[in-house]
Design a protein around this nucleic acid. Sequence first.
DNA 1: CTGAAAGCGCTTACAG
DNA 2: CTGAAAGCGCTTACAG
Lengths: 365, 365
Amino acid sequence: MVGEQRQATMADVAREAGVSVSTVSRALRGVATVTPETRSRVERAARELSFALSRSASSLVTGKTRRIAVLMPGLPRAPWFLGTALTGIAGVLSEAELDLLVYVVTNKSERAAFFDRLPARRNADALMVVSFILTREERERLDELGVPVVFVSQHAPGRASVYIDDAEAARKGMQHLLNLGHRRIAHIQSAVVETFTWSAHDRLAGYRQALEEAGLPYDDALVVRAEYSREGLREGIGSLLSLPHMPTAVFVETDEMAFEVLSILRSCGIDVPGRMSVLGFDDHSLAEALDLSTIAQSAGDTGRIAAELVSSILADPGSDPTRHVVLPTHLIPRGSTGPPPRDRQGEAGVVGQQGTPSEVPAGDS
Amino acid sequence: MVGEQRQATMADVAREAGVSVSTVSRALRGVATVTPETRSRVERAARELSFALSRSASSLVTGKTRRIAVLMPGLPRAPWFLGTALTGIAGVLSEAELDLLVYVVTNKSERAAFFDRLPARRNADALMVVSFILTREERERLDELGVPVVFVSQHAPGRASVYIDDAEAARKGMQHLLNLGHRRIAHIQSAVVETFTWSAHDRLAGYRQALEEAGLPYDDALVVRAEYSREGLREGIGSLLSLPHMPTAVFVETDEMAFEVLSILRSCGIDVPGRMSVLGFDDHSLAEALDLSTIAQSAGDTGRIAAELVSSILADPGSDPTRHVVLPTHLIPRGSTGPPPRDRQGEAGVVGQQGTPSEVPAGDS
DNA sequence: CTGAAAGCGCTTACAG
DNA sequence: CTGAAAGCGCTTACAG
């Protein structure tokens, strides 16, 4: 009871300042027509009463919530990328005085719940969807929604999106390995039950394309889908190490997985890059410390630019709601990649399959 | 214009279902008094019209927003811990059908802006403050707020909080190093301009306490405050390596910093743990891969339990709003810690200061 | 430049 | 079990 005083409303402020509620509203929003004196009287009253605007009330009348919803897959799946992107988003939105509503969806039921309730419809002015593969129904639900949707870290034709060219980036990375002389290059990607991300698809596509362009055969045995865990990766690497012709390099879907790969290889005495080159993807903040060669993208920029896109769409409804921003990527060569064993003098190394570059199977499977 | 149809309201649903708005409201909220038939008619109508409840409107009348605000320091400062905690929070809140509003505060101005607008007052039903050292004014602002505040990853006397005993945990870690025979143990913590976290303080306190209990002198030169960056840490380590009596072990404030420390030591040819033991804090998901000894805490549990605390406080306003939950920590010994050089046979090692355990200066400075 | 009034879309006593 | 009415706290034409 004690101290449980009721939260002050505009009516209270109006009384205190000796003006009408309309004037309070205008003064507090900075509408130009208000006299400086009136404004300061109102502001003082508001401060004295610790007045805080009820967004519920203003939303109800304006139809704007000044809230942006962000839908992201469980952070544990790619904590670094998502965390960094989220921080970028948060910074920009806070500057634009927009609130940030976060929906983390880790499993099927949370996912269903999200699309069922679809709180974004009236509880946010826009929705940002971060690296999610949506089903057709889900996409249709979003379309009905009537709020602008911005896709982040994924390409959505006909929709605003901010992303990198994963396939092109993967190709660049592969080219680096090819240039070093590697001919048997494996690819490790995460096996997720619910396939959440496009980037995995596109990175694989880039991997295949690079092989094809180099006239090298695509070998299913070299593409490993591993659980996103230390044990899962150990198994994946096991399958590569038990191949008749071991690869001399691995291109790993994310740096975080590559860190584990480095550690596992080290633990079984396989020298990196002497015996096996390892290439990651992301340029995680620890990649330098672990001397991991990688393909850099800026998670922070991705988030920031996506948030800017959102706020520009909100500010100017006439603006093109299908704008695309493609962010750059680049190779960062470090110590985890080097020439394959047979190119190293004084080392026996495993003989890589020389390949018969002409008989390459066609693009598909 | 085309397809821009107005969002359906309860009035539309009521018309469609041939009932009153009150009945729609009751049916949709699952109030018991509604006939099954009426309820299903209403539900069908709602579905057909893609009705979505306006939370702004319900909030306005109920005074509840069903939204929880989380205030956290910039994720880049401790991305892993905060990201993992946030995921834990998100999961629990989503189950309780509470929305999650995230405020990331990275610098003074964002911080001021947050406390100025203090959107939590009416725009959230509760506030979770994650590892922030608040000023007195800020704390008072929160008190005036009138919404329950739960402190996460920090101890706030007289307020609900979920945390670990950082000092005790640090002591355990130090004990491990002492038990291995180390006598000169350094401590590296992050130097943040705005002092955001209590845990740094408490871990340092634990460090000092352990020394004191072991009858060892506290040496200012062994406590290094380093910028949270590779270069900052390199400088910090430099100051340790240039000491007349080099330490034989380092206790690092967080695993993420310890990873860099490992890498820097390796890059200058200092064997870990042969020459220098390294102990981290957190049990980061990569700690195992990097074979880092560490003191484990569960960031996920911290988030989850804090969120449960919040939802229980909201569900039962009579419940004790000052409840404390102290989460366990434990040492995970791995390969980065071992006996100091002088205990190793066949190794010259740097001679550690033998110490004269009796003449220990008193606890302070 | 300011005020009175209507109304945003809900929930909640109050009747029936 | 259901409906009519009031009201939550704002903003926004509309007057003046």
